[in-house]
Design a binder for these strands. Sequence first.
DNA 1: TTGAAAGCGCTACCAC
DNA 2: GTGGTAGCGCTTTCAA
Lengths: 345, 345
Amino acid sequence: MSLENDKKAMRGSKRRTTMHDIARLAEVDVSTVSRALADSPRVTEETKSRILKIVQDTGYVVNHGARMLRQRYSGQVLVMLPSIAFTYFPEVVLGIEDYVQEHGFSVVVGSTRYDREREEALAQQLLTGAADGIIFMTGTIPDLIKTYPSFDRHVVGISRAIPDEQIPQVNIDNYLAMETATRHLLSLGHKSIVHLAGSQSSPTFRARADAYKKTMEDAGLGGHVRIIASEEYSIQAGADRMNELLQDGAKPTAVICAGDDMAIGAMHAARLMGLAIPGDIAFVGFDDQPFSAVMNPSLSTIQIPRREMGMAGARLLLANMDLTKEKPESILLPHKLVVRESCGG
Amino acid sequence: MSLENDKKAMRGSKRRTTMHDIARLAEVDVSTVSRALADSPRVTEETKSRILKIVQDTGYVVNHGARMLRQRYSGQVLVMLPSIAFTYFPEVVLGIEDYVQEHGFSVVVGSTRYDREREEALAQQLLTGAADGIIFMTGTIPDLIKTYPSFDRHVVGISRAIPDEQIPQVNIDNYLAMETATRHLLSLGHKSIVHLAGSQSSPTFRARADAYKKTMEDAGLGGHVRIIASEEYSIQAGADRMNELLQDGAKPTAVICAGDDMAIGAMHAARLMGLAIPGDIAFVGFDDQPFSAVMNPSLSTIQIPRREMGMAGARLLLANMDLTKEKPESILLPHKLVVRESCGG
DNA sequence: TTGAAAGCGCTACCAC
DNA sequence: GTGGTAGCGCTTTCAA
C-alpha cells in the first residue's frame, strides 16, 4: 500500500524547536512559555519579552498537531464543492477565505466531482477533527455527517440549496431571478423561449426551471414551454444541447440558460448554424461570469454576488459553530438582471 | 481579540468515541485496536474483524490531531497561488487533487493576492506542521520557508518559475511557446505586432516578453517591437491597455497577449473602437481557457496542459518529500499552438 | 508570578 | 498475537 510508504518516507529529519527548548533557553518552565505566548496577564512583562525574544531568534512556531490535540479544534474550515474548475466557485471561495482568515481559520477546498466516495472521504475531515466545520456548495450533505454530535452546528450551505431545514444557508432567490429573466424576454416580445436547464435533480436548477415554466404559463405561453435539461453543466453541454435543439428543427426566438457557461456554449453552436445573435435568436444567461461582459455579443444575465455569498456563508458558519449563541438564520442575498447585447433592445 | 473567542466558543460538546472506547467494547488493549486499524499482520483476522465491526457500529474515526502529533505529519499539502479566481489555476488544482488524494493527502488552497503577509501566514502552515509540503504557483517563496530544515525537500513550484535552482519545478517552455506564437503571426505576414505583456517582475511573463522581442528582432522587425506590460493581470487590464494603445494612435495589425484573459479584454476594447477581428487586427492569446474556443471570433492561443501540470507538480512534491530517494528533476511539459479565427488565415 | 504535573488520543516499542 | 507503557508537544489546572 503506497499510501503508507508515501508518508513514512516523508518523515524523519524533522525535530524542530519545541516549547521545551524555548523554556530551557529562557530558564523558565514550559507552562510559562505557553502562557507568555498566549499573552496571559499572569506573566511579567519582563519574562514575556525575554521569552518572545528567544522565540523570535529561534524561529519557533507552535506545533499545530499538539495544540489541536489539546484544544480540540483544528482551525480549519472545509469547503466542499463539485469542482473548483467550475467558473462559478472560485470567487465564492475567495469570499470565504476573506472572512475566515480574519478569524484565525484556514480554508481547505475539496472537489467532490459528484462522487459519493469523495464526499464521504472529505466529510471524514470533520469527524476526525481535521476540520471544525464544513461549507457545502454541493447541494447535498453525506449521511455520514449526521453522526457528528450536533452536526447542524458545524455545517452550512451556500448557493445550492440543501434540502434540510436545520442547516443555515445563504443563497439567492433563484426562482425570483429566473422569473425576472424570463419576464425581460417576454417584455421584449419573445414568445418562443426555450430554457436550457441544468440537472433537474439539483434544487437550484429545478427552481430556475420551475420559475421559467410558471412565468411562461402565467403569460399564456404554456404551449411554448420547452425545457431541455442537461445532466452535465459545462460550455460543451450548452453547445451540445443547442445543437440537438436546432437539429430538431426548433426555431426559438430566445434561449434562457441555466448559467453563463451553457450560454456561451449555446451561442457558439447557434452561430455555427448561421444564426445571428440577437437578430435571429436572443440569449440570456445566469451568473454573470467575468467573460460575459466582454463577449461578442455581450451576454445579458443575472448577476450573483458571489464574493459576498462566500463571506456571508463563512460568517454564517462561524456564527453557527458558536454554541453559546442561537443557531443563525439563513440568508437570501440580492441578485440583479444585467441587460447587455445578447438579447437586443 | 475575537480570534480566540471564535475558537473557544466552538469547542465543547465534542467528546467523541476514542480508541479506548473501542478497546473496551472489543475487550482488547488499545494497542491491538491501533494495530487492527493499521491492518497489521500481527493481529488475528478474527480479532481484527471483531474490532472492525465495533468501529463500524460506533462510527469511530481516528483523531487527526493525535495521529498527527504522534506520527509527525499532517497528510496535507498546501497549494499557494495568487488567487483561486484566476481562471488559470483551478484546473491545475484539480490535477493536484487527483494525484495527491490517491496518495492519502488532502489539499489546502491558499490565495495570497500578492500579499507578503498572507504568504508568510500560509508558509507557517509548513512550519507548524499543519502541512507537510507546499506547491508554489506564486513564483516566489517566502524567506520564512528557508528556516525549515531541508526546506527544499518540502517545496516545489508549478507554472511560475521560482528563481531558485534547488527547488524542483514543473513548467512549460514559456520562451519557446511565445516564440512559436510570434512566428505564427509573422508567417501570416504581420509586421506591426504589439505585445500586451504581464508583470515584468514575473519570470514567466518576462520570458514571454523576451521571446516576443527576440523573435521580432530576428525577423528584422526590431523597430516594431512594442511591449505594453500590465502589473495587474485581468480581463479589465487587457481592455485598459488596449484602449491606451489605440488612443495613442497606434495601429498594430496584430496583438499577442500574455494570456487569454487579457486577450478577451483587449479584443472587446478593439471592437468597441470599431476594429474588425481579425480583418483589421489579429489576436493571439496564451493559456487556452475554456471560453477561448467558443468566443466570437474564437481565439488562437497557446494550449497549456494545466491538469497535467497539476498532477506532475503533485508527483514531484511527493517524490521530493521522500527523503529515502534523490531529489527529483524539474519537468518541462509540452505546449501547443492552437490556431483559431482570431488571427485569420 | 511561576512551577509541577496531568493528560489530550494515538502509535510503536518492548515484553510476554 | 496481545498487552503494557512511554511519550509526541502542548495547555491548564493546582500548588506554591
